[in-house]
Every structure is written in C-alpha cells, then in structure tokens.
Design a protein around this nucleic acid. Structure first.
Lengths: 202, 202
DNA sequence: ACGCTAACTGACCGATCGGTCAGAACCTGA
DNA sequence: TCAGGTTCTGACCGATCGGTCAGTTAGCGT
C-alpha cells in the first residue's frame, strides 16, 4: 500500500524533520546555551544523525537564525507600537498586553537572545535582536530624566523574561497560562506606570 | 637586592596570579557563558598559558567553584534574614537593601548562576546555588495564595540581576553606583510590597 | 521498470576542547 | 653556591567540536 503525504501530517508529534530539529535545537539553545549545545546533542535528541541536521540547516549559525529569527521579526513589529505608550493609558495597557503575549509565545527565543545576546555578537540574527532591544530601551530612556525610570524598563524586561523560563524549576510548576498572563500584565504595568504618567516633553 | 613580598602586593593591577586568572574567568563566564568560555581564552586574556591556569585551579569546574562559590556563601547568609520580611516594614526595607547590596557586590557571580544554573546542574557549586535560590523562592511562595505574588519575586530577582549586568550595553553607560542602588531598592521594594503587607498566616 | 530528486547517513577532516606530565625558570633560605 | 620548593610552560593525549562529501535509501512521476 502506498502511503500518502497526509500520513505524515496526521501524526501530531511527527512533523517535518526540519520543524522537529528546529524545536529541539531551540529548547537546547535556551536552556544549555548556544555554545553549550553541540550539533551532536541536537541530532541525538531529535533522532537523526548530525549530518541530517546539517542537511536541513546549512550551519549551526543558520540553525540559530531559523530558531530565533521569527521572534526577532515579531519583536520588531511589536516595537512599532511602542509610540502608543505615551498616548493614553488604554493604549498603553494594550501595548503591555501585546508585549506580554509576545513574551509568552516566544519565551524560549526571547530567553535565548536576552541572556546570550552579548556573547553571540557577530551572528547576524543576534545583532538584529540586540539592535531591536537597544531601540526599545532607548525609547524608554529617551527623555527619562531619572535613573529610576531607565531602570524600570530593564527590570520589567529582564524580570518577565526570566520568570517565563528560568524560574519554573523551584516548584513553581506549570501554572495556568491565563493566570500567569494577567498577573504578569499587572506587574509589568505597575512597573512601567511612572514612565507613562508623565506627558510627552521635549 | 632582594625583593620583599610587599613588592607584589604594592602593584594594584598585578595581584597574585590566582586572583588575576579568577577575575578574568569570572568575567568571561558571566558574559560568554561557562560552556562558551575555553581555558585557552581565559589563559590568553590573563597573559598566562593554559597549563598555568590548570596549575592554579585543578579543573575548569574548580575554577567555576572558586569564581562563584563566595557569592553562594554570601547568598546563603543573606537568606538567613529573609524571615524578617514579615516582621515590620523597617525590617523588610533592611532586607531588601541588604539583598540589593549583595547583587551589586556579586553581580557577575549572580548573573552567572542565575542564567546558567539550569544548564550546569551536576557541578556542586551550581547545585548549591540552585538549592539556595529554590529555598529563597519557596520562602516567598510559601503561603502566597495568588499566582501574582509568586511571580513578583521572580520578576524582582530576574529583573534586578538582568539590569545589573546585561542591560548596560544599550547606551545605559555606567551610571552612578549610589543612584542605581537607591533606584533599584525603590523598584524592588515596590515589587515586593504586596507580599509583605499580608500578615503571617497558617 | 526506470530515472530523478529529496532525505538521510557514515566516514572523515582540521581545529579545538579539557586535562596530564615532565621539565624549565625562578625565588628563597641555608 | 647550592638544594628545594613554587610557579610556569610546551608537548602531548583522547575526545569532541563544526563542517564536508560521497554514497545509500526511499518515494514519485513516467
């Protein structure tokens, strides 16, 4: 009997090889670090040979690019809405929600380039991520006169990213998604509140 | 003429070889990651041979132990005062200050075991660090009924740690230490405020 | 049945990894 | 001056790194 193509797609956890390898690689990069993850480890975890991994992705760098590239794209898009921060408190609330949702959707990717962005400079996709983060930080720090206001953004970003990935090993367990989402929105909104309050000045 | 021992100590940036290597290794571990830093890199940066590094420190693991061990010790000590959190608001303020000062003093060490604690399990000093962080988190989450309260601690810890090390690459520059310290104290206190308010129950 | 192409693999490459070891270089007290 | 200890190093080890390549396997249109 011939096996039609839908047979592959029918199996939920047996996607295309590329997607499979990519997902595993991303998880490894986020937890063990890019430098700390070998192609052999990824291949073993995915059930393929190292050669297969390099067949689907030209190089280890290309694998990283494919893994976090979409997240950087999305972040660039989210950044477009940052101007709304100073408009109204409703618009600001909307931006924070959008940002938190972004963090949830790309938690592994964000954790990867947040915590390894400094050591991986030179890899194009990382440089792109650093540039976006820099612009984001600059927007917040733009006309913040006090140190505190500048720090608030950093704490919110680093804190949220850390909480989404690194913390869950201290008995946190996997809490309900919705509950975590709304709690994070509350916390981050509270953190950024003093920045939003002040009207836009030269 | 014979050179007495004080001659060595007299030169400020030419401390003992061990201390020199240790400082450079720590900086590399924090920024490039433990796995991403080779003994050769450390040796080159310190101006010694790889063999010399391994003469002063038995192994790469031992180098990590020596680098972040003291910080873990100090954190264990700081943890002793966590009980004061619920006593009075003055005592709580004192604890937060002590904690922030700890973060400042051991910023590189903390950043290392916060962000790489998961990937380096098995190395004794890392396991120790994870255990302490787990106890710290458990103390905060102990009788917190809401998800939000549990998240607040994680955001504060991860946020402060991130801000102290990773952020300063986006034009943050090196702001005045005192200013950063008091700003962080304000922010972290604000973050943890809702937890402290509730009296000790159960 | 055939040939084409995509998917996949083992063997192999030079470079680098962490680590060992014998010895060179150096300082110091006798 | 010389023995003894500390500090430091180059040569070397097996293992693993990222990456190349020739070749095998399998599915599909004709």
């Amino acid at each position: 009997m011939t096996v039609n193509k839908s047979d592959r797609e029918a199996q939920p956890h047996r996607q295309t090889a590329s997607a499979e390898i990519l997902a595993i690689a991303l998880a490894q990069f986020a937890t063990a670090g890019f430098a700390g993850t070998s192609l052999q480890q990824i291949a073993d975890a995915a059930g393929y040979s190292k050669s297969s991994v390099l067949y689907h992705f030209t190089s280890k760098d290309a694998l990283l690019e494919a893994a976090i590239g979409p997240a950087v794209d999305r972040l660039e898009h989210v950044l477009g809405g940052v101007a709304r921060l100073r408009e109204s408190s409703e618009a600001r609330e909307l931006f924070v929600e959008e940002f938190i949702d972004f963090l949830f959707e790309y938690r592994l990717e964000v954790h990867t380039f947040i915590n390894q962005g400094q050591s991986l400079v030179g890899i194009p996709v990382i440089d792109r991520a650093n540039a976006v983060l820099g612009r984001l930080a600059a927007t917040f720090a733009a006309d913040s006169t006090t140190v505190e206001e500048k720090l608030r953004f950093g704490v919110a970003l680093g804190g949220a990213a850390y909480e989404l990935v690194a913390s869950m090993n201290f008995g946190d367990q996997e809490l309900a998604h919705d509950e975590r989402r709304s709690a994070l929105i509350t916390i981050v909104s509270e953190l950024l509140a003093p920045i939003q309050t002040r009207p836009l000045t030269a």
